[in-house]
């Protein structure tokens, strides 16, 4: 992790960098990098405020490249760290877990958000961690009219986890490994940005999440909504996007989660900082 950050900081200090036309922290736009253009993004997300104590920090380093004017691909290095106290535990123990993964993203631009009636793109991402596998598919729609930018995403995910089962056969323990489909969450994202200047915009982003597990079906649902700030340096060498996303309401109230906020599955607050460089 230290090495990747050093690499990112070294690139940060290099001159002649430019940033792509990206304005949201949570919602994807149909815009792609032009052929041969490369881009480095550093994503930092802090999530906090679940039942008992919880803090999660996600770091993503993304290297993107435009393969042609409509297709781009990228490689992510992901690190997640979570510290939490178990609800109802009186020992005061805080548990910490970390997870690392890599993922590959592919985005195909179908139509342009400015010159055509509606911008659109399809997106696919495959992620591999130590114990799991994730596949994400996304439909991206957006429209830019003068200073207004609006984007909408529908995303579906398939999450497999490694399962190891042990059986005692003739006095010997035999282990069986298999990947099991655990969840198929669905997410809707909506983003609106008003560009006060070409280099500065203010808007909001909304995230509607549904946690669907293979065992229990729809278990959790929540709506998150908050402001987004976008800043592009004068010479477009770098870009900064800042988003604050609090949970607004629990959309799936159950006997286990009767409260107005679902703090079992989702956090009360999320902060995301996205730094973007093109080189």
């Amino acid at each position: 992790m230290k090495n990747t950050l050093t690499f990112a900081l070294t690139l940060l200090l290099l001159g002649g960098l430019k940033a792509q036309d990206k304005q949201f922290a949570q919602t994807y736009q149909s815009t792609n990098l032009a052929r041969g253009f490369r881009d480095l993004e550093i994503w930092s997300t802090v999530r906090m405020g679940k039942e008992a104590f919880y803090r999660g920090i996600d770091e993503r380093l993304e290297f993107e490249i435009g393969l042609n004017d409509r297709l781009q691909t990228s490689l992510y290095l992901n690190a997640t760290h979570q510290s939490f106290a178990t609800k109802g535990d009186s020992t005061g123990t805080i548990t910490s877990v970390s997870d690392f993964s890599i993922s590959s993203e592919w985005k195909l631009k179908l139509t342009d958000a400015t010159t055509q009636t509606i911008g659109s793109a399809v997106y696919g991402e495959l992620g591999i961690s130590g114990t799991g596998l994730e596949l994400e598919a996304k439909l991206i729609l957006d429209k830019r009219i003068d200073k207004h930018l609006i984007a909408f995403n529908i995303a579906g995910e398939w999450e497999w986890e490694q399962e190891v089962k042990g059986k005692v056969i003739n006095g010997k323990v035999e282990q069986e490994n298999k990947m099991k489909l655990m969840a198929t969450p669905i997410e809707f994202n909506l983003g609106y940005m008003y560009n006060i200047r070409p280099s500065f915009g203010l808007g909001f982003e909304a995230k509607n999440q549904y946690e669907i597990t293979t065992e229990k079906g729809l278990e959790h649902a929540a709506l998150l909504l908050g402001p987004t700030l976008f800043f592009n340096s004068k010479d477009k060498e770098y870009k900064l996007i800042l988003n604050f996303l609090p949970e607004i309401t629990n959309l799936r109230k159950t006997d286990e989660q009767p409260n107005s906020l679902d703090l079992d599955e989702y956090e009360k607050y999320q902060f995301r900082l996205l730094l973007d460089f093109e080189f």
Partner: peptide
């Protein structure tokens, strides 16, 4: 020309 303008120029900034 319009397609190139949208894809090349619009990749970096609002056209």
């Amino acid at each position: 020309g319009l397609t190139l303008y949208a894809n090349k120029c619009g990749a970096c900034h609002q056209i």
